[in-house]
Amino acid sequence: MNPAVWLIGAGPGDPELLTLKAVKALGRADVVLVDDLVDPRILQYCPRARIVRVGKRGGCRSTPQAFIQRLMLRYARQGLRVARLKGGDPCIFGRGGEEARWLDERGVSCEVINGITAGLAAATAVGIPLTHRGLATGVTLVTAHTQDGGMPDWSALARGGTTLVVYMGVARLQDMRAELLAAGMDAGTPVAMIENASLPGQRDCASTVAAMARDADAFRLRSPAVLVIGQVAACRMFAAPEVPAFPEHDLRRSA
Rank of each mutant, 00 (worst) to 15 (best):
S207C: 04
C205G: 04
A182M: 03
A239Y: 01
V209S: 09
L141K: 03
T208E: 07
P152H: 09
P200I: 05
A239T: 14
A182L: 04
R222Q: 13
A171E: 10
P190R: 04
H145T: 01
L135K: 15
H145L: 01
M193G: 00
G230V: 05
T131E: 07
V243N: 01
V191I: 01
A234G: 11
A144E: 02
A187M: 09
R222G: 06
E242D: 12
L141W: 14
A192E: 04
L135S: 13
A239I: 11
T208H: 03
R222I: 02
R177C: 13
T163R: 08
S223T: 14
D148C: 00
G149E: 05
D175H: 14
P224T: 09
A136P: 01
R159F: 03
R133A: 09
V142L: 07
M168E: 11
S207N: 06
T131C: 04
A178C: 09
M212I: 05
V232I: 10
P244V: 12
N196M: 02
R172E: 04
P129I: 01
D148P: 00
A240T: 03
T131P: 01
W154Y: 13
F246P: 00
T189Q: 07
V228H: 12
Q202D: 01
R133Q: 08
A192N: 06
A240M: 03
V166D: 11
T189C: 09
I229L: 09
D148E: 14
R177T: 13
D215V: 02
T163G: 08
M185G: 08
T131G: 04
G184E: 08
M176L: 13
A197Q: 00
R133T: 02
L173V: 00
D153V: 06
A210C: 00
A210D: 12
M193P: 02
Q231I: 05
D217W: 11
G188S: 11
D215A: 05
R172T: 13
L199R: 15
V139I: 15
Q147V: 14
A211K: 12
A156G: 12
A239R: 14
A239P: 01
C235F: 15
L221K: 01
M151Y: 13
G169N: 03
D186M: 02
W154E: 04
V126A: 05
M168S: 10
A234C: 04
R203K: 14
V209P: 07
G230N: 07
V226N: 10
A206H: 13
A192P: 02
C235P: 02
G150E: 12
G149P: 02
A213N: 06
P247M: 12
V166N: 08
D204S: 15
G127R: 08
G150C: 11
V165Y: 07
A225I: 09
P200C: 03
A192S: 15
H132K: 12
C205R: 15
A218G: 10
P224L: 12
G184K: 09
G161A: 07
T208F: 05
V228P: 07
A240G: 08
A206D: 12
V191A: 01
A183R: 10
V142D: 08
G150H: 11
I229S: 08
G201I: 00
I194Y: 05
D204E: 14
L135D: 07
A234F: 02
R172F: 06
A211M: 11
S198C: 11
E195H: 05
A218N: 11
V126C: 03
E179D: 15
P200M: 04
D153E: 11
T143D: 01
A187E: 15
R220E: 13
I229D: 10
